[in-house]
């Protein structure tokens, strides 16, 4: 009986000692790590360079191109033409023409309500690459307007 009580007291004392240790150790730990956001110190050039390097990776596959595009598309910006060129060349290496056309359409969508100002200039910047790789613009495919319509599932 006494043995059991002694053991329990020992265990209690031990855990208490441990917890005081933790309390003492904690200030050092949380003084060093502050759980708050940091200001982004990356400049625009570094940002472009990072994505350009990503897409210029010679071993990039379709999965990673999609990941990079979605990542980039999450930003509030129209990607620089050199980034789109890098994406198109990555599509060429991954042998996915459909993705290349889709990316140009998505860039056009990214232009938002400035599409009439940005998009013509953008295509002009992309033109050498488009000609070199044989990628058609959506306009050349007649896809600046809807080509096919779908029945609304509610009307079937």
């Amino acid at each position: 009986m006494f043995r059991a009580s002694a053991l329990r007291i020992h265990a209690l004392a031990k855990s208490a000692a441990n917890s005081t240790n933790v309390v003492q150790a904690r200030p050092a730990a949380w003084l060093g790590v502050r759980y708050m956001s940091k200001h982004n110190t990356e400049t625009d050039d570094q940002f472009d360079q990072r994505y350009e390097n990503y897409f210029n990776n010679p071993n990039i596959d379709g999965w990673d191109i999609r990941r990079g595009v979605h990542d980039l598309w999450g930003h509030d910006l129209v990607p620089e033409p050199k980034l789109t060129i890098a994406i198109l060349r990555a599509c060429r290496r991954a042998n996915d023409l459909a993705m290349a056309i889709r990316v140009i359409e998505a860039v056009k969508d990214k232009c938002g309500n400035k599409v009439n100002e940005i998009y013509p200039w953008y295509i002009q910047e992309l033109r050498p690459t488009l000609t070199e790789l044989g990628i058609p613009t959506p306009e050349e495919l007649g896809w600046d307007k809807p080509e096919l319509a779908l029945l609304n599932t509610d009307d079937m």
């Binding site: 307007k145 809807p146 779908l150």
Partner: peptide, 9 residues
């Protein structure tokens, strides 16, 4: 083959 509808659609 890859996509159902174009952006315009």
């Amino acid at each position: 083959a890859s996509f159902r509808q174009t952006f315009a659609e």
